[in-house]
Design a binder for these strands. Structure first.
Length: 483
RNA sequence: GGCCCCUUCGUCUAGCGGUCAGGACACCGGCCUCUCACGCCGGUAACAGGGGUUCGAGUCCCCUAGGGGUCACCA
């Protein structure tokens, strides 16, 4: 098919003009990995097209919705650094809108009052199932005009018995559903509250949503919502049903697979930029590029590049990405994180200068895949007494090594400027005198200074710890040997 | 079970009829080295299966299998 460039341009212009998308979680739980990814896709799609990103909280389930989760969801977005252009809207505050729409549908005849009890409806479904038919409401109340107004009723939307409902999905293409499979869905419950599939459609119409980007699990809901659009004579938005995230067992991601809440990742020392990068790359790609700044994602994001198949959540790769971000993170940010982490553990960052702490995070950034790891790795600098790893201590803090250590201690004590260069020179003087290799000297010293066998380079470590604290620790270790 | 969606290395993916099927994580070697990391170099590893269409198929069509989703007066 040959089209001229102009019409192509107009097409595209029409499609992407005044883009409005929404992310619509319910506040019945924390913002989790899957939800966050959906939110991200919506947000980046909007930003890429200079459109509007809307946050809407679906809190029509009065039983399960809580204010705590509402706050937690906002806090999660706050941490991620995602700002919404509109909202948060709350469905619980928009009841008049749904009522109005329901009345309209009732008076147009698209909806009807149903006085069947839930038990009766269940019985219908059982019967249909037993007969091998699609379990659904049988339409008993569709044409019952002699209703007793005192009998409680709910509102149902009349679904066509024949024909097809076609969902035109940006990712999947046309998905065809037989109308005969569709139920006369309840749009207003007996207690007068509107239902999910109804509110969603009404809100999307009211908010002039142009693109609905949501999880694949909503694909089968879509024909139901389409019915609401039809009944109201509204045009439907475009849909993009994105793949889901699976756990390593290929099952739906859940609490079993580790931290589920976004805020948990904050607690575990992840950087929001890394999480965003990882989540967006899960199902989306741009050539071979792995690391994207937010700006780069905005620039390159396109729904067309989304993968249709489900993706398995891979914690190792997230860890790797997080370390990449830590490696290139701003030094002041890392020092602040370190300080906060130390204080949380009852340690005082101020025993070392800000400059020293800068040096410490620089040494640790290539050794930490999370901020938590970085803080753990820095602990020994700030503790007053070295916490010895017994195995390391008994191997290296021996009388055999004490002579070497004492010699080094004395060399170190002569240094004025306790720079890593000068510390290195001291080491070399001892090594030459005693004719030993660096490894022979460095490991005992490392254990004496850090309590264990793992740390940044020994010269840097000593220099960063400072002369007084270093000599003190060496003395303490020597005392321990001589015990 | 009905309906719907999906299927390239273990994992995330590139690929948009002609590629030695590329990259990344993980893994395994090597180099660097005071430990641990970082870094650098190299390696193992995939088109679910079967039919078509085509000169030619990972790419298009059909079937099978497997995985997932959904079938509420929950969202």
């Amino acid at each position: 098919m040959c089209r001229n460039p102009r019409s192509l341009f107009e097409d595209k212009f029409l499609m992407y003009a005044d883009i409005r998308v929404r992310f619509a979680p319910s506040n019945t739980g924390h913002l989790h990995i899957g939800g966050a990814r959906t939110a991200l896709f919506n947000w980046f799609f909007a930003k890429h097209h200079a459109g509007t990103a809307i946050l809407r909280i679906e809190d029509t389930d009065r039983q399960r919705s809580t204010e705590e989760y509402y706050d937690a969801i906002l806090a999660a977005f706050d941490w991620l650094g995602l700002e919404w252009d509109e909202g948060p809207y709350r469905q619980s505050r928009r009841m008049d809108l749904y009522k109005e729409a329901a009345d309209k549908l009732l008076s147009s005849g698209a909806a009807y009052r149903c006085t069947c009890t839930p038990d009766e409806v269940n019985a219908m479904r059982e019967r249909a199932r037993a007969e091998g038919k699609t379990p659904k409401y049988d339409g008993t109340c569709r044409d019952r005009y002699d209703k007793d107004p005192n009998v409680p009723f709910c509102l149902r939307l009349r679904a066509p018995d024949v024909g097809k409902a076609i969902v035109d999905d940006i990712l999947t293409g046309e998905v065809v559903f037989e109308n005969s499979q569709l139920d006369d869905m309840v749009i207003v419950r007996t207690d007068g509250t509107p239902t999910y599939n109804f509110c969603v459609a009404i809100d999307d119409i009211d908010m002039k949503i142009t693109h609905v980007i949501r999880g694949n699990d909503h694909l089968s809901n879509t024909p139901k919502q389409l019915l609401v659009y039809q009944a109201l004579e509204e045009t439907s938005p475009k849909f993009a049903h994105i793949s889901m995230i699976l756990g390593s067992d290929k099952k739906r991601l859940s609490k079993r697979h580790g931290a589920d809440s976004i805020l948990d990742y904050k607690e575990r020392g992840f950087l929001p930029e890394a999480l965003i990068n990882y989540l967006v790359r899960l199902g989306w790609s741009h050539g071979d590029q792995e690391i994207f700044s937010k700006e780069e994602i905005v620039e390159n994001f396109a729904l067309e590049n989304l993968n249709k198949s489900a993706a398995v959540f891979n914690p190792e790769k997230l860890l790797w990405l997080n370390q990449e971000y830590i490696k290139s993170a701003d030094g002041d940010f890392l020092v602040e994180s370190l300080d906060a982490g130390l204080r949380a553990q009852g340690l005082s960052p101020d025993v070392l200068t800000h400059k020293s702490r800068e040096g410490i995070v620089d040494e640790l950034r290539t050794r930490s895949s999370t901020l938590t790891e970085m803080i753990d790795g820095a602990r020994f600098f700030f503790e007053n007494e070295v916490d010895f790893d017994e195995k390391a201590a008994s191997k290296f803090l021996t009388s055999e090594n004490s002579g070497l250590m004492l010699k080094l201690r004395n060399e170190l004590s002569k240094i004025d400027m306790f720079s890593s260069e000068n510390v290195k020179s001291a080491f070399h003087r001892v090594m030459e005198e005693e004719a030993v290799k660096l490894g022979k000297l460095a490991q005992p010293v490392r254990v004496a200074i850090t309590g264990g066998t793992i740390s940044p380079g020994i010269f840097e470590t000593l220099s960063l710890l400072g002369k007084d604290r270093s000599l003190h620790r060496l003395d303490a270790a020597l005392a321990r040997v001589n015990q």
